[in-house]
Each structure stands twice: as structure tokens, then as C-alpha cells.
């Protein structure tokens, strides 16, 4: 290999990678991590179910303060397993779609779920008229639990989920566009990151077999992101609102997030999955 000023590409490992460089991981080696992941997702959805029940109870009772308090910690359990939930696009839309996906904006009939309720709680500062939306959110979450229970997780979707979570962060969390009324984006940010880390951890032995340096690099970038986010943690284990994030910290997050997105996009290939 010629030593050329293509050092950057070499660092990315791309030019060094001949065709089909990665031996496929023995499929049976995937069974453990894939099933452990489903167990993790099931646990996360159980938490989502019970937390959503508490959240919607507060909403229906008219307890604005509690509802506002419970909004962000509840969503975390969805954000961590987003790639699996997204497989059910109708539920994903009705549980977490943002207002700009609807032509008629906040008035749209099909704008439901967390962000619609968020609009009332944080922008209108009211719990009025949310009973139906609260009930629908609860039943949608239960529906999601049932569908996920019946789903055989395709291994490539499990492994690819790590990259998908980082794309979420890069596209919406890093700019504070996810929770535009409550500005609780940092909770979701951490949820996405934790979900991606979980997947890397479950497949760590297999990935290390292929590329130990890669795993070290990924770990380092996760640690950098965690460190910056930790600066904005509050005493009760939550996060400051997004507007508190300093410009230099926001910029400092971009590099590791984009690099993680690039690196994790190679995971499936490294494990010989399509």
C-alpha cells in the first residue's frame, strides 16, 4: 500500500479494507446477543408501559406539574430501543411523531402521542382536553409491547440499530429539535446513546475478534459523549433543558457523534451481516 496523503481514509480503515475482508461471524454466536437484546428491549418496554401509565394518570388527573416532571424520564425508555419500535411505523408515528411531519401542524388530527401532549403541557401549559390522547398513548404503548413480543428480531436489524440510534442523535437530538416545547432533548440524547452502547456491549466479543482497535475507538467516543452530557445532569438524575447547552459543548458533541455514526455503520459488515 502506497503511503499517500490519503491518511484520513486510511485512518477510517476504508482503503485498507479489501473486498469481503470480514469473515462472517459464526451465526450461532449471534444467538446469545440477539436474544439478550430482545430481553433488554422487553424490559425497556415494560418500564415504558409502567412509566407511561403514571404519566398519563397525572395528565388525566390534571396534575400539570407532575405530568411535566414525568414527561422526559418516560420517553427515555422509547428512545433507547427506537430502532425496534420503528419497525412498526404506524405505532412509531402515533407515539413519537414530531409536529413537522403533519401538514396542519399542531391542529392535525393525526398528530398524537408524546409530542402532541408535550405541546399542551409545555407550550399551552395545560392538561385540558388531553384525556383521549392520554388513553391512546397508553393503548399504543401496550400494542407496541404485544407486537415486539411476537417479533423475531432479525440479527441485522439488531446490530444495525446501533448506527440507527446515532443517526437519530445526529439528525434531531444534537440540534434540540426533538422536544421543541419542553427542551428536554438531553434525556432523549442519553437514551439513544445508552441504547447504542447496549448493542455494542452485547456484541463486543464478536466485534473484538474482528477488530480490537475499532472497539477501543468506539468506546472512547462514547465516553467523550457521556462526559459532555454528564456536565448537564441535574441532582435528581435528570438533565438541564437544551437551551442551557453551551455552544462549545454542542460543537464538541458533533465530532464524536458523527464519528460514532460512521464507525457503527460498519458493524454489520464487520460481523458478516447484510
Amino acid at each position: 500500500m502506497k503511503k499517500t496523503p490519503l491518511a484520513l481514509l486510511l485512518t477510517l480503515g476504508l482503503l485498507n479494507t479489501p473486498l469481503s475482508a470480514f469473515a462472517a461471524t459464526a451465526p450461532l454466536d449471534l444467538v446469545g446477543p440477539v436474544s439478550d437484546y430482545k430481553i433488554y428491549v422487553t424490559e425497556q418496554l415494560d418500564e415504558l408501559g409502567s412509566h407511561t401509565q403514571q404519566f398519563t394518570d397525572a395528565v388525566k388527573k390534571g396534575d400539570l406539574a407532575t405530568a411535566q416532571k414525568l414527561y422526559a424520564p418516560t420517553r427515555v425508555y422509547y428512545e433507547s430501543i427506537e430502532p425496534i419500535a420503528e419497525l412498526f411505523s404506524d405505532l412509531d408515528a402515533s407515539i413519537v411523531s414530531r409536529v413537522d411531519a403533519h401538514e396542519k401542524g399542531v391542529k392535525a388530527d393525526d398528530f398524537t402521542g408524546f409530542h402532541r401532549i408535550e405541546y399542551s403541557l409545555f407550550s399551552e401549559k395545560s392538561t385540558q382536553g388531553l384525556n383521549e390522547l392520554a388513553d391512546k398513548l397508553n393503548s399504543d404503548v401496550k400494542d407496541l409491547q404485544t407486537r415486539v413480543a411476537g417479533l423475531t428480531f432479525p440479527p441485522e436489524k439488531v446490530v444495525g440499530g446501533a448506527a440507527a440510534l446515532l443517526e437519530e442523535v445526529a439528525a434531531t437530538k444534537i440540534s434540540g429539535e426533538e422536544d421543541r416545547y419542553s427542551h428536554t432533548d438531553l434525556y432523549d440524547f442519553q437514551g439513544n446513546i445508552d441504547g447504542a452502547k447496549k448493542i455494542v456491549d452485547l456484541f463486543r466479543p464478536q466485534i473484538e475478534k474482528q477488530d480490537k482497535a475499532f472497539v477501543a475507538k468506539v468506546d472512547k467516543n462514547f465516553a467523550t459523549v457521556d462526559k459532555i452530557l454528564a456536565k448537564y445532569k441535574t441532582k435528581d438524575g435528570g438533565f438541564e433543558t437544551y437551551d442551557k447547552v453551551k455552544d462549545n459543548d454542542r460543537k464538541a458533541l458533533v465530532g464524536p457523534v458523527n464519528t460514532l455514526a460512521e464507525d457503527l455503520s460498519t458493524l454489520r459488515g464487520k460481523l458478516g451481516l447484510n
Binding site: 448506527a163 443517526e167 445526529a170 439528525a171 458523527n258 455514526a261 460512521e262 455503520s265 454489520r268 459488515g269 447484510n274
Partner: peptide, 16 residues
Amino acid sequence: NFVERWDRTPLQEQES
């Protein structure tokens, strides 16, 4: 087009 995401997608997957 979410081009950054597309450019992070394996070639095989793009083609399929």
C-alpha cells in the same frame, strides 16, 4: 435526501 445517512449505508444495502 438524508445524504449523510445514505453515505453511511453499506453499498450492498444501497443497491438492494
